[in-house]
Simulated scan of single mutants.
Amino acid sequence: MEHTSTLERVLRGAALALVVIFFMFPLFWIFMMSFQTNETILRIPPSIVFEPTLSNYAALITGRLETAAGTLEINFLRTLWNSVFLSVTSVAVALLLGVPAAYAFARHKFRGSEDIAFTLLSFRFAPPLLVLLPLTIYFQQLGLSNTYFGLVWVYQLICLPLILWIVRGYFEDISADVEYAYRIAGHSWFATFRKIALPLAGPGIAAAGLLAFIFAWNNFVFALVLASADKQPVTVGALAFVTASGIQYGQIAAAIVLSITPTLALALYAQRYLVEGLSLGAVKG
């Protein structure tokens, strides 16, 4: 019996190690590529033994990319800042709109409430290409093309449905009796929402905001079409490394490392809330 238990633990550990290696190896390889030149990266057969260089990161920071055709001016740090600004602002607006809406859907059932909630969620399921053409036309007519305001607005198609459904599940999981008792004591609806519901749903709101931030950060299509180079996020700015003289694999790898660091750090810091938020939103929503 003890021998079987030990063998089971060993096999489980080996399986877990294989899974970790399978999923983490691409990240490890990209990290190694970021310290290599194009010649080293394209060497056949590939090798993990090489002389590391910081030239790729230096090119990103200085904005000067050396290619076979000459020096190419890039503005990677600007695109990185655009990603931070767009993602943080979009999530803040989505939380401001989505949390009260989620509370309303959780506590106040009315005719058509489920249909409205599902319609909002369907925006998240719709492929971006489905709404991209009408959005482009409307943005041109309204003067919102190539503006931060327009991008933050369209990012709500990504952030708002996600926040609405996850936070709604958290509010539904909170006993309404606690809020009723607070209301009976003479407090207003807004005071009940602010002092009772919000603190109790805090982990869910944090998880929803983090997930929305990750999805907004990774957005590519909307920013590619609706913004020019000075407003585009880092996901679109990485296209600058595909030049007429070739693909700059080392700079692309360095850009990936720098661009995924914020979301990876946030995900590792709040992974418990992420798992809890996803599972509860799936059950309650």
Rank of each mutant, 00 (worst) to 15 (best):
V10W: 10
V10Q: 13
L11Q: 11
L18Q: 09
V19I: 14
I21R: 07
I21V: 15
F22V: 12
F23Q: 08
M24P: 02
F28E: 09
W29V: 10
I30G: 01
I30C: 00
I30N: 00
F31D: 04
M33S: 11
M33V: 07
M33T: 06
S34E: 02
S34N: 03
Q36H: 05
Q36D: 05
T37H: 01
I41A: 06
I41V: 09
L42G: 12
L42F: 13
R43V: 12
I44H: 11
I44G: 00
P45C: 03
P45M: 06
I48R: 04
I48C: 05
F50N: 02
F50P: 04
T53R: 04
Y57D: 00
Y57F: 14
A58T: 08
L60V: 02
I61G: 00
T62H: 10
G63M: 03
E66A: 08
E73V: 04
W81Q: 13
W81M: 11
N82F: 05
S83Y: 00
S83E: 08
S87W: 07
S87M: 07
V88Q: 05
V88C: 06
T89P: 03
T89D: 01
S90E: 12
A94G: 10
L95H: 06
L96S: 15
L97M: 15
G98L: 09
V99N: 03
A102I: 02
A102D: 03
A102P: 04
A102E: 02
Y103F: 15
A104C: 07
A106F: 01
H108I: 09
H108S: 07
K109Q: 07
F110N: 03
F110P: 01
F110V: 05
R111D: 04
E114F: 00
D115E: 11
A117P: 04
L120G: 07
L121Q: 09
